[in-house]
């Protein structure tokens, strides 16, 4: 459930509001990006640390879409984590049984889309997570990734075919 951000909130209140609203979304996005729950949790913490640290920028620039701003921080944090030596030992290709226990024990045990997203090359994964999963516009996605909107569009088109197959249970969607 999203908590409404109220004008006039002080910084701490705003951060708390964001944390309540977006922590789960960011955690899941980081998990899909990093294919590791512990790393995703660390990335989530880092995201909030950066958000707090850069609250000045947020206020000064009059950023209107807080979610887009936060997702941009989160995806860049994931990229930072990828640069670490630790990340080189992670095999991003997950088998269903490699997923965290709490996912395996959940009511919905179909993880086909999650596994597909995790297995995608980073450049496709980024646009899918930001645009399709987090609902950023193509322009916001482009800004977050430092790409042109045309490049984002190309990547989305390339990844769409695989997504549609999963979403339709193996059959292609009608356009």
């Amino acid at each position: 459930m999203e908590h409404a951000e109220v004008p006039g909130m002080n910084r701490e209140e705003r951060l708390r509001c964001w944390i309540e609203s977006y922590s789960d979304q960011i955690l899941r996005m980081c998990f899909l990006y990093l294919s590791d729950q512990t790393q995703a949790e660390d990335a989530l913490q880092d995201t909030w640390i950066k958000a707090w640290k850069h609250m000045d920028d947020y206020e000064r620039k009059g950023i209107e879409n807080a979610k887009a701003w936060l997702m941009r921080i989160a995806i860049n944090t994931c990229k930072d984590h990828q640069r670490t030596g630790w990340f080189r030992h992670i095999d991003k290709r997950k088998a269903p049984e490699d997923l965290p226990q709490q996912l395996l024990q959940a009511a919905d045990t179909d993880h086909s889309l999650s596994l597909l997203v995790m297995a995608l090359p980073d450049k496709y994964k980024q646009v899918i997570l930001l645009h399709y999963y987090q609902g950023l516009t193509q322009k916001e996605t482009a800004q977050a990734l430092g790409l042109s909107p045309a490049a984002v569009l190309r990547r989305l088109r390339s990844a769409e075919a695989q997504l549609k197959q999963i979403l339709s249970g193996g059959e292609a969607y009608d356009e």
Binding site: L32, L44, L103, A106, A107, S112, S114
Partner: peptide, 11 residues
């Protein structure tokens, strides 16, 4: 679909 698949992953 992703929220459903990952619903157990929450804070």
């Amino acid at each position: 679909k992703l929220d459903s698949e990952l619903s157990a992953l929450r804070t």
